[in-house]
């Protein structure tokens, strides 16, 4: 919680008054995006080496 009243408030988002925490969150956003990219690469590697068609997901 970054504000105690809406009176005169500007930035109202979570941790708006704690830039260090926002930087950590930003770092995690970048890290998760990178993880998704790596996960895509791993998925490709397994897919290309597997002679069976990919199983349907229900």
């Amino acid at each position: 919680m970054s504000i105690s009243t809406f009176e005169g408030a500007g930035a109202v988002f979570t941790f708006a008054d704690k830039p260090a925490i926002l930087m950590v969150i930003t770092f995690f956003v970048a890290a998760v995006s990178l993880f998704a990219l790596v996960a895509t690469m791993i998925h490709e590697k397994h897919s290309y080496s597997d002679p069976q068609p990919k199983k349907l997901k229900h």
């Binding site: 930035a11 988002f13 830039p19 930087m23």
Partner: peptide
């Protein structure tokens, strides 16, 4: 991303 303008304001 950590500036005051980059979120609900």
């Amino acid at each position: 991303p950590w500036s005051e303008s980059m979120g609900p304001n």
